[in-house]
Amino acid sequence: MTLTVSNLHTHFFTRAGVVKAVDGVDFQIAPGEILGLVGESGSGKSITGFSIMGLIDDPGRIVSGSIRLKGEELVGASEDAMRTVRGNRIAMIFQDPMMTLNPVLRVDTQMVEAIRAHEKISKRDALARCRDALGMVGIPAPEERLRAYPHQLSGGMRQRVAIAIAFLNEPDLIIADEPTTALDVTIQSQIIHEAQSLCKRTGTALVWITHDLAVVAGIADRIAVMYAGRIVETGDIDAVIDTALHPYTVGLLGSVPTSNRRGERLTQIPGMPPNVMNLPKGCAFGERCPRRSSECDAEPLITEPRPAQAVRCFHPHGQGGKL
């Protein structure tokens, strides 16, 4: 396994109370695998990613759990040790390409430093590698782009630069936090394709965070659905899309327009995600759940009603369950 996250809890100790942004997350990811991490806004996707990077700032902290990269424990590792992991063995791509590159530094500066932070290499050799990386993510005239400032590049170009930076040091894992949300649809699908083929080619594992199920369906091998700081369903992408088990996943699928359900009415999940500072007793989805019963006042545990598909629910939709 490239990465094994088990029972991860990341909380923010704010003046108003404890925000349990991540509250018991488990997942694994194999080399070359692409995991789609899906959920509504505030479900804890980004915080899961930042926890893996060791980039949780005060007042937040990883309270308990384990994050193992190729067997090596990262929770509790020293800041120095984490620095050698970041950008080198685990890289991250952010949502807004307009904001992720430093506006006053040239592209070459920002790429070369990413290499030189982790290995002793001459500037010339580093530049050559940067040029190759830009070519790899489909940037025309990379030589020229290297000398550009971020504002001289389009949003799509900038996100490609960020992706190139992520791949520079051939990491084991890349965490992409909604990397295409800010881009228009054609660029979005181009970038998804490039990222996908790069991962398959290099064997890099990829966590693709998004709230858009359609995007995940296009890129991921597996999917993990997050709700209120927990993973409520996980499984192979086709299986989950075909036969979602958790009422929340079913609700999410109902709100995605797909080609084979054209003409049908889109349903919205009623209600709002709960406040993670003040979770209801029992199942966190309970207040919005159409299948809720008195049993649901207790906390549901993970079960595996079908092979390679796990769910956290007392009354999962059955096999061949109607969508």
Binding site: M53, L55, R83, T84, V85, R86, G87, N88, A91, M92, F94, D96, M99, T100, L101, N102, P103, E113, A114, A117, H118, A162, I165
Partner: peptide, 11 residues
């Protein structure tokens, strides 16, 4: 974000 990204690069 650019500072967070710089940190994510391991600088």
């Amino acid at each position: 974000d650019y500072i967070k990204f710089a940190r994510a690069k391991g600088l």
